[in-house]
Design a protein around this nucleic acid. Structure first.
Length: 259
DNA sequence: AAACCATTCAACCGCCGAACG
DNA sequence: ACGTTCGGCGGTTGAATGGTT
């Protein structure tokens, strides 16, 4: 670390002095224009290095320390839906950076995930219905209605069966009052096949990391929905997860897996 | 105490898409 | 239409640290 290059661009770990310069610069000029930041801040760092340091370390309200059970659970579930879209996942975890989430996944959850995939494969070989569920990931409309239940506090219960006809116009926006748009999300997020194993992971995680009584008791009850737990804990609101998030909708648009 | 191994995480790298001239 | 620049992202690396023998 700490290599000096011919062009004078420093690499490696950041010193306190550099942190201070960068922080002052961003506070003065605001985020953005990263190509100008090294010059304005008087740093011999490349723009990318400055940006990364700010985003991952210096930015205010960055949460450090262990991930909570709820955070872990959310990561797992979002990863199941989105894959390695770390920035999107991190965007739903206040104070966490994409780098943090990525690191956490790679160090704590990756193996568990692989194990779970193996289980899923085994299971899918056993039941055709499971096979269908794996194949049929239904795309969603690009826009969400303002009448969405999560905005109105409605509870949605739906028939999980799905026919081929449902695919006829996968990107069609729901008509007013059409709850179908959220039903898919609800199905996805409450699907036992998707949820299976996750709660177990997080329980183990909490115990492994020496989580206190709060954490352990926080996951009591095997059938507890982690999302309701999030809401109960008031740390985050599940409804917020998808509100005003175009990116997420775009991803969902790409989510169709053709049988 | 020393050597070795495993884990963590800050930082770098290369790529991509958007914006702009 | 094309080339360039910039911001942003995910994958990967490697130093630091902790644990084990």
């Amino acid at each position: 670390m700490d290599i000096q290059f011919p062009l004078g661009v420093r690499k490696g770990g950041w010193t306190e002095e550099e942190d201070c310069l960068l922080k002052k610069c961003v506070e003065k000029h605001g985020e953005g224009n990263w190509h100008q930041v090294p010059r304005k801040a008087g740093l011999n760092r490349c723009r990318k290095s400055c940006r990364l340091r700010w985003l991952n370390y210096l930015r205010p309200n960055i949460k450090r320390g262990n991930f909570t059970v709820d955070e872990v659970d959310l990561i797992i579930r979002l990863h199941k839906l989105l894959g390695n879209r770390w920035s999107l996942i991190a965007g739903r975890l206040p104070g966490r950076t994409s780098n943090d989430v990525k690191n956490y996944w790679n160090t704590h959850l990756h193996k568990q995930s692989n194990d779970q995939i193996q289980k899923d494969v085994q299971k899918s070989k056993m039941t055709q219905s499971t096979m269908e569920k794996i194949k049929v990931i239904r795309p969603r409309p690009r826009t969400f209605s303002k009448n969405l239940p999560w905005r109105m506090g409605k509870t949605v219960i739906t028939d999980k069966t799905q026919t081929k006809e449902n695919f006829s116009n996968p990107f069609q926006s729901p008509s007013p009052g059409d709850d179908d748009g959220i039903l898919w999300w609800d199905n996805m997020l409450t699907d036992p096949d998707i949820n299976e194993g996750m709660i177990k992971w997080t329980n183990e995680e909490a115990i492994m990391e020496g989580g206190g009584e709060k954490e352990k008791s926080g996951m009591q009850g095997a059938g507890r929905d982690p999302f309701s737990c999030i809401q109960q804990d008031n740390q985050s609101n599940w409804s917020d997860l998808f509100m005003d998030n175009i990116d997420l909708q775009d991803i969902l648009r790409d989510c169709q897996v053709v049988p």
